[in-house]
Structure formats: structure tokens, C-alpha cells
């Protein structure tokens, strides 16, 4: 129906104006339809979430409220009862990890344990750990293969798991435009999943392929969700944000060991406090032939590889 349908009365110019008006209205309506999916999306984002401040600016009460809200959201969206806490770094502790390449047999139990412990997206089999099968006689990752699918260990191979190296000078932290990721006093590099804008600059900057982006909303059946969660580590991440290995800080800051270490059947993994001279990881650093990946980049990884023999 056209209200300006009487061409006799309207002069050329005003008809043109009317047509333009109709055009503009049609355009606006079409635009509203085109971006309609946005409204479905914003329904999931509460006002509190939208205005939430950076982790470091939250008062204890703010944090309390947020943790509570996140627990409720998890119940609503995933149907699981979970506890989300916030564990702080301990004084005099700096975590280090060492991995014995002589005995790692490439079974990928660590990657599997990470997948479960950290509530990773199920369909993509996400994990913070990738295990490379390498040919004996070469340290060249170019010849490595992360997609091996045969019984392990193969006689002419050795195996090298790679995860976040918790760099002393992390480039991922430097490049983040909004300080959504930072290094904690105990050496763990964390991400505030509620502050990250998802620009993926950190992913481009990390030399160890340690960062993972949530290309979609993680899917996990309620029964499989690990209910012991924390804000900066294994709570279920929102869509569109970055995540990475956090040395299981919800465990390790509580005196427990990382899930990947507990799962390792060979005892290849050694975790501990680098500031404690008697810790096992310090013993490894003192007595074994230790190296770090890509030492030439000067990022000082806190993740060490060593050989027994």
C-alpha cells in the first residue's frame, strides 16, 4: 500500500522525495532484519556481564557476586551444579615444569586429562597439550607429527608434549591491547575470559602454539563437567575469547599437582616450586641435561625438557 499513490496531485519532485522516503524505510527495515541474529545473541549477555570490570579492578565483594552469577549461568546453560572459586597465588612460590623426554612414550594421557579437567569443548577434542612424534636423531619440529595414529611408542621415535611454557617474558601478554592476559606472581600466565575481546593477537604472538580460541560456544554434557572450577582457569569459557594452559592453578595453588602430571603413566612429568632449592624440579634443573624450546627467542620459558641418559 502506498500512501502517495495519487500521481496526479504530487509533482515530480515530491514524488521523488516520497520514493526516497519509502526507499529509506525499506532499507532500514531490511537492515533491522539483517542484523536480527544480534538480538538473539545479546539475550545471553546480561547487563552485569556487559559492564563487568577487569579482574584486577574487582573488589572482593564484586568478585563474590560475579562468581555466584557465573555458577548460576553454568547451571542455566549447561545444567550442571558447579563451584567457581578464585585462588590467589601464594607467596614465595614460582611454578616450574620439567618433562623427561627419555621416558615419555607418547600415550597422550596428559592431553586427555587436560581435556577432562579443564572442561574443554568435546566435539573439537580440545586440549592445551599437543604431543609431537619426533624422529630419533633430530630435534627439528618440522619433522614432527602431532597427528600420529598408531600404537606407541614406535622404536625409532621419541615424543615431545608441548603446552604453554609460561614464559618469563611472555610476548602474548605484551601484545594484548586490553591487558586481558597477564603473568601472575607465581609465574602463571592467565586470561580474564570476561575481559578478552577476542582479537587473537596473542595467538599470533605465541611461539609455542599454546593459545586456544573459542571459535564457538564450548559443548559439554552436564555429567562430564568438572564441577571444581576457578575464575582464571577451568571454568567453562564463553564463546569468542582466548584461553590457554594455566598449570591447573585451581589445583596447584591448593597444594595439588596438575592433572596432566597425575595422568602420566611413565612419570615423565615433574612439577614444583622453582624458588624452593629442595623441590624435585630444582633437582632436575641442577642435575640433568636440560633445554628449553626455542631458547634463541629469549622468552625464558618456565617449562623444561630433559633427558635421562
Amino acid at each position: 500500500m502506498d500512501p502517495n499513490a495519487d500521481p496526479q496531485k504530487s509533482r515530480g519532485l515530491s514524488r521523488r522525495t516520497a520514493l526516497k522516503g519509502v526507499g529509506a524505510m525499506l532499507g532500514a527495515a531490511a537492515f533491522a532484519r539483517a542484523i536480527a541474529p544480534l538480538t538473539e545473541w545479546t539475550r545471553d549477555i546480561s547487563a552485569e556481564e556487559f559492564v563487568q570490570k577487569h579482574y584486577k579492578e574487582l573488589s572482593p565483594i564484586d568478585l563474590e557476586i560475579i562468581l555466584h552469577r557465573l555458577e548460576k549461568d553454568t547451571k542455566k546453560q549447561y545444567g550442571a551444579d558447579v563451584t567457581i572459586k578464585d585462588y590467589k597465588p601464594q607467596q614465595g612460590v614460582k611454578f616450574g615444569y620439567a618433562l623427561n623426554l627419555s621416558i615419555c612414550n607418547g600415550c597422550r594421557k596428559c592431553a586427555e586429562a587436560c581435556h577432562i579437567e579443564n572442561n574443554h569443548d568435546r566435539p573439537s577434542h580440545q586440549s592445551y597439550i599437543r604431543v609431537f612424534e619426533m624422529s630419533k636423531g633430530s630435534m627439528n619440529l618440522e619433522k614432527g607429527n602431532a597427528h600420529y595414529d598408531h600404537p606407541v611408542p614406535q622404536p625409532d621415535k621419541f615424543y615431545m608434549p608441548v603446552q604453554c611454557q609460561q614464559c618469563e617474558h611472555p610476548p602474548c601478554v605484551d601484545v594484548c591491547p586490553v591487558e586481558a592476559t597477564w603473568k601472575e606472581p607465581d609465574g602463571i600466565v592467565v586470561v580474564d575470559y570476561n575481559w578478552c575481546i577476542g582479537c587473537r593477537y596473542c595467538e599470533a604472538a605465541c611461539p609455542y602454539h599454546a593459545r586456544r580460541f573459542n571459535w564457538t560456544k564450548p559443548q559439554i554434557p552436564a555429567v562430564e563437567i568438572n564441577p571444581n572450577q576457578s575464575y582464571l582457569s577451568n571454568r567453562i569459557r564463553p564463546q569468542g575469547v582466548m584461553e590457554k594452559c594455566h598449570f591447573c592453578l585451581h589445583r596447584t595453588r591448593n597444594g595439588r599437582l596438575p592433572a596432566c602430571l597425575e595422568a602420566c603413566p611413565t612419570g615423565a612429568r615433574v612439577f614444583g616450586n622453582l624458588l624452593d632449592p629442595k623441590s624435585e624440579v630444582r633437582q632436575v634443573l641442577a642435575h640433568k641435561r636440560v633445554f628449553v624450546l626455542k631458547e634463541d627467542l629469549g622468552l625464558k620459558p618456565q617449562f623444561f625438557y630433559f633427558f635421562d641418559v
Binding site: 601484545v175 575481559w195 578478552c196 577476542g198 587473537r200 564463553p238 569468542g240
Partner: peptide, 22 residues
């Protein structure tokens, strides 16, 4: 951006602007 709704985190003064490092 994965999270265009958080665009304001990039606004100096409102968000946290990692200048001059980033």
C-alpha cells in the same frame, strides 16, 4: 573480534589500554 560487545575495553579511560607496549 570474537567479542565486539567488549569493544569498549579498548577505549582509553574506560577500558584498560595497554599503551605503549601493545
Amino acid at each position: 573480534l570474537g567479542r565486539p560487545d567488549r569493544f569498549w575495553h579498548l577505549i582509553p579511560g574506560l577500558g584498560r589500554f595497554n599503551f605503549p607496549v601493545s
